[in-house]
């Protein structure tokens, strides 16, 4: 089964992902890729509270996630892979590991140094450079907070 959604969203497992996207994609596995969360059991427990009944979540470091991609694709489970920032998704995508896949930008919020690109998306120059690098790895990059929203193409994101 293909990974049904690759998403960059600071909030990781939350309402838009579980209800908005989950209602359409019916995932039964959430793969959270985050170097910090891997070693923090109590924070993992907070995110596990948001996993819907019948689904499960795992927490992986970026290298472990990249190594696990082929197994995840071969699994019967419908997986959603989440990172909280662009840099982490780039680490997963490196070496053409995600070639042919699509990455969805769903939520990076206002912070010093970031410019508003869309109401739910603020990027700085490093983010833009990394998004271009993800695209160079053969990955389609777009922005859309919810399935029914207008899709923002990479050209819009890069400005």
């Amino acid at each position: 089964m293909p990974i049904v959604l690759f998403r960059i969203d600071e909030r990781l497992i939350h309402g838009q992902v579980v209800v908005g996207w989950g209602g359409q994609l019916r995932p039964d596995l959430f793969v959270v890729v985050d170097a910090g969360l891997v070693s923090s059991e109590w924070e993992q427990e907070l995110y596990l509270l948001g996993v819907p009944e019948g689904a499960e979540a795992i927490f992986l470091s970026p290298p472990d996630a990249r190594a696990a991609l082929s197994d995840l694709k071969a699994s019967p489970k419908r997986a959603v892979l989440l990172t909280r920032d662009v840099a982490t998704m780039l680490m997963v995508a490196e070496g053409k590991a995600m070639e042919g896949e699509s990455v969805n930008l769903g939520g990076i919020h206002s912070q010093s140094g970031r410019e508003e690109v869309l109401p739910y998306l603020f990027l700085d120059e490093e983010d833009r450079q990394r998004l271009a690098e993800i695209a160079q790895e053969g990955v389609r990059v777009t922005a859309r907070d919810l399935p029914g929203s207008h899709e923002g193409p990479l050209s819009t994101l890069l400005g």
Binding site: I13, G15, E43, L46, Y47, L49, G50
Partner: peptide
């Protein structure tokens, strides 16, 4: 509002 998600996570982290 919800028992999980961004609001609940912020609340649980803040009150921990």
């Amino acid at each position: 509002d919800l028992p999980s998600g961004s609001c609940a996570i912020a609340a649980r982290m803040g009150c921990r």
